[in-house]
């Protein structure tokens, strides 16, 4: 009797299970299998070709004593924290403004979301031109009659990261805004009526009532933004090339350069393993928040 029930359990939705086999295989082989392979070979001294000459943690020791890696990590921290805070704040404020039942809401939404349709490469190039002193903002302002105006963030190692952050914000805030707007639309109209009856100011309602109710939206947005931060690569390549000097280097670029340009696979593997660890640090708590705790119905 119990055996029959189990068999039926396996056979239930057979076609759906069959259809998901390719994705399961992809996940197991491509994601899990190759990740494990990469981690394994990061303990070797593979150069141009992978080989199994085990050197223990030597690659990691070298990684964490390399200035370029440390600079990359520091840059990612600055970029990451700025992106996280700014894109959430700006995205939410824009969403709240759009939520005021304004006219042409669709038009504004399209305009604000539009940059997201561009690739990071195009975004990087556009912003490189905008911030280029001979073509962009500086040239424009000087043309207005301020010949001493200087605005050249991409040539300054102190400001180059802010140039990258500006481009990334322009690119990504629209998506955050849309997610937030969807979250706001999910708030029951009755909540607003109740707070209005109580005479609570609108900003307080947003801050203390609406935002706590939007927790799931915030968690999802957070994960989206964070994964975008860690894999930052193409924007930097297009906009600054990691320069001036090493001042806009990022970990993903370190991985690529060492794996393919300086023919040191294992060093690149060690760096990419550290990036994987960082992603795991973000994903695992999120998985607990999303799937843990709740009993499945």
């Amino acid at each position: 009797m119990a055996q029959a029930a189990r068999r039926i359990g396996i056979l239930r939705n057979l076609s759906a299970k069959f259809a998901s086999v390719p994705m399961i295989l992809t996940a197991l082989i491509v994601y899990l299998g190759f990740s494990l392979w990469t981690i394994l070979y990061s303990f070797t001294n593979s150069r141009l070709l992978p080989q199994t000459n085990w050197v223990g943690l030597a690659q990691y020791e070298r990684l964490w004593s390399t200035r370029r890696w440390l600079i990359s990590i520091e840059n990612l921290m600055i970029y990451g924290s700025s992106m996280l805070v700014l894109s959430l704040v700006i995205g939410f404020v824009l969403a709240a403004l759009l939520d005021q039942k304004i006219r042409f809401e669709n038009t504004y939404r399209a305009i604000l979301l539009y940059p997201y349709a561009l690739s990071f490469i195009v975004t990087g190039l556009v912003w490189q031109w905008l911030l280029n002193p001979d073509l962009g903002v500086q040239h424009f302002v000087r043309g207005l009659g301020f010949p001493d105006f200087v605005f050249d963030p991409l040539s300054s190692s102190d400001f180059v990261l802010f140039g990258v952050i500006a481009a990334a914000l322009w690119h990504g805030t629209g998506l955050v805004m849309c997610l937030m707007l969807a979250g706001l639309r999910g708030i029951d109209e009755d909540i607003w009526k109740a707070t209005r009856v109580e005479g609570i100011p609108q900003w307080k309602t947003y801050l203390f009532v609406v935002i706590p109710m939007m927790k799931p939206v915030f968690v999802t947005t957070l994960v989206l933004i964070t994964s975008g931060i860690i894999k930052l690569y193409d924007l930097v390549i297009a906009q600054t090339g990691g320069g001036p000097g090493l001042s806009s280097e990022v970990p993903a670029k370190y991985v690529f350069d060492y794996m393919f340009q300086s023919q040191n696979l294992a060093q690149g593997f060690a760096a990419s393993t550290m990036m994987l660890a960082a992603v795991a640090l973000v994903i695992i708590p999120w998985a607990f928040l999303e799937f843990g705790g709740k009993k499945r119905a």
């Binding site: 390399t66 200035r67 320069g243 001036p244 000097g245």
Partner: peptide, 9 residues
């Protein structure tokens, strides 16, 4: 890498 940093800063 070292030279890039040295020459640019």
């Amino acid at each position: 890498d070292l030279m890039v940093e040295f020459f640019n800063d």
